[in-house]
Design a protein around this nucleic acid. Sequence first.
DNA 1: ACAAAAGTGTTGATCCTACACCCATGG
DNA 2: CCATGGGTGTAGGATCAACACTTTTGT
Lengths: 244, 244
Amino acid sequence: MQTDNFIPCFSIDCVVFGFHNNELRVLLLKLKNLDKWMLPGGFVSYDKDVDEEAIKVLRERTGLDDIFLRQFHLFGKKDRISKSHAQEMVDKKVISEDLKKWFDQRFLSLGYYALVEYSKVKKPEPDPVSEAIEWCPFSELPDLVIDHVDIVQKAHQRLKKELNFQPIGLNLLPDEFTMSELQALYETILNKQLDRRNFRRKMLAFDILKNTGKKRTGNAHKSPILYSFDQEKYQQLLQADHLF
Amino acid sequence: MQTDNFIPCFSIDCVVFGFHNNELRVLLLKLKNLDKWMLPGGFVSYDKDVDEEAIKVLRERTGLDDIFLRQFHLFGKKDRISKSHAQEMVDKKVISEDLKKWFDQRFLSLGYYALVEYSKVKKPEPDPVSEAIEWCPFSELPDLVIDHVDIVQKAHQRLKKELNFQPIGLNLLPDEFTMSELQALYETILNKQLDRRNFRRKMLAFDILKNTGKKRTGNAHKSPILYSFDQEKYQQLLQADHLF
DNA sequence: ACAAAAGTGTTGATCCTACACCCATGG
DNA sequence: CCATGGGTGTAGGATCAACACTTTTGT
């Protein structure tokens, strides 16, 4: 790692949300030789926009390019990283000795959250510091380094709030999906039950769903209609950001 | 200025909103020897929380301590500061030669916005780089350095959005105020007219206003009731952050 | 007495919520 | 044929927008 190119004391952390088996999940890296996990993140080169670097992190980790990605908070407490953190990383051979100085800095970390379609993410090779990359259920996060739990929680709070202003789903669901699947997504994020019939009515009223004419069969019940998003109207609504 | 103590490449900018003569205003500094203005801001010491430093900037500039202050965006474009900016500051003797190196860095700037009560702010002495400090009308901002116009605009956008989630006014109005004054504040921020009667009903429904029993006289019209905020209920509502 | 802002109440439209029935499908 | 989830409609309540009349004050 060429740390000379990086702006010092500054990092990026990305909370990547996916949705699978009716469960909200977060993409996490397992640190080598340590029973701790971390958010995918990185540093900012002197000649790159901060947002660019965040996009790069996402691309490297998920292979996805056109992604919903939002900056949401700068974590800047002076003692957010414990004194022993870098030393422990060196001791456990997570990082090499010569990187200790870099990781021993005080870091301000800018949090981003991303919404991605679970199935489209090719699970990539772990990198030099991590031995695994996994989709962990949001409801039972493993031990995370530093203040990464706070970052995930704050990202979720923000996501919940944004639901009031923005349509959501285009980035989290497959191209075709049923109304129930869309509802399950909302219920998971908001962590509360919604009325099936009212939900449908409301969603259709937004006029961002296209009935594909197809149905999903094989479910031992009535076959539900498959919908897709009307990309154009969806984007319009995203811009508008009026209340939902 | 002891730049050694500061985290490099990182600054804070504060958009301080005030309300006076039915007008939204922003606190700005006029640069010495230059026909440009800037937002009050500062840098972050290695041993201080970022939020602490923002509070400090506000205290130094307004004399106020207990202030509504929110982080809202990190401005991180690589070319947000023009190459010639630092040189110009040196040429015009805004900063001394030995500070050129510091100001020639690439800076990421964290934007905060604050709401303050205009009348409580003692207009302080300008500092070494500025020759004046003024409340400029938001609707007709002067020439600002770097991307400070964008920062102000984005702060205003965010403020508008937050109005949907939070009560506002406690920080922008004097202790006692009329319903019309409160309405004028909302109308100014939202930049649209509201119905007088519906506004009153809605506000009273929130149950955060106390009728002081007093009236404002001397206006050649019916004397309006003076209200004050019920601090306790106001704070409760702030926490709750449900929709307004 | 009058001009102008302040206080108050009502009505219709709209939106949201709660709820019940029939339909289709695979087992 | 039946269990189960999927599709549809409706009635009551709450909320919001639009609007008009009366009151108070200084001049």
